[in-house]
């Protein structure tokens, strides 16, 4: 079994995110909708990742802990998807090919099991990144 694998990451819109976002980005719904990664079941097997366990996703700019779920929309082997939102943007490279648009889709990431690591809340990630996180839920 491999310890980590390199996959091609895309981060795109989902209706789950859209609906949860209107409830509020600090809600449990938003957390559930966006702190997940979807990939092909074969890739999960290669890594020994069980459905609904946490994984660490690392890109050229950073890493994030999210939960691996069965894709709600089929993902071919080699591709991974984190829904647009706070968790995705922890690892999206800000390079823009001189167009202004970051590399939201099509960047390499490594994925490894992280069963015992905790998924941070949206607020903890964003406030934490600018030194404002005070702890709490």
């Amino acid at each position: 079994m491999a310890e980590k694998i390199v996959l091609n990451m895309i981060t795109q819109r989902s209706i789950e995110e859209g609906q949860a976002m209107e409830k509020g980005k600090t809600t449990q719904e938003y957390f559930k909708a966006c702190s997940v990664v979807e990939m092909n079941p074969d890739d999960m097997k290669r890594l020994g990742i069980l459905i609904n366990t946490n994984v660490k996703v690392t890109s050229e700019v950073g890493d994030v802990i999210v939960k691996a779920i069965t894709p709600t929309q089929f993902c071919p082997p080699g591709l991974a998807h984190i829904r647009q939102g706070v968790w995705a943007n922890q690892i999206v490279p800000p390079r823009t090919q001189s167009t202004g648009v970051p590399q939201y889709s099509g960047f390499p990431v490594t994925i490894e099991p992280a069963r015992n690591e905790r998924i941070k809340s949206a607020l903890e990630l964003v406030q934490g990144s600018v030194g404002l996180w005070k702890g709490g839920a």
């Binding site: 950073g62 939102g85 706070v86 943007n89 999206v92 949206a122 964003v126």
Partner: peptide, 16 residues
């Protein structure tokens, strides 16, 4: 809009 959620986090750190 919500640049805090939708910008890559490094861009947010710079702006902040």
């Amino acid at each position: 809009t919500d640049a805090g959620a939708h910008f890559p986090i490094d861009a947010v750190k710079h702006l902040k």
